[in-house]
């Protein structure tokens, strides 16, 4: 699942590893990190389940994202400012 990725391939400025954390901790950590994410950079979130409720929060707040299931069994979500 993804939106357009104009900065695909760029190294993530910051990684939020939320694997094994119970809600609401993954959401809290990623929201705090996004508050400080500079434009043109992206945040990488690692999580053990597909964080579907987060996707609508990102869309509401003008962020784009790309979510991918890794062979190791966790999801990797790249997030960046849409505008």
């Amino acid at each position: 699942m993804s939106t357009d990725d104009p900065i695909g391939g760029r190294v993530a400025a910051r990684v939020v590893d939320a694997r094994g954390l119970e809600p609401p901790e993954p959401m809290v950590r990623v929201m705090n990190a996004l508050d400080e994410l500079p434009r043109g950079e992206r945040l990488l979130m690692l999580i053990h389940i597909e964080p579907r409720p987060l996707f609508r929060v990102l869309e509401r707040n003008q962020f784009a994202y790309h979510c991918e299931l890794k062979p190791e069994g966790y999801f990797e979500v790249a997030i960046w400012h849409r505008i």
Binding site: M27, M31, L34, D35, P53, R56, V57, R60, N61
Partner: peptide
Amino acid sequence: TRVLAYDQA
């Protein structure tokens, strides 16, 4: 002030 808004449940 929080920059981002949580989802409207």
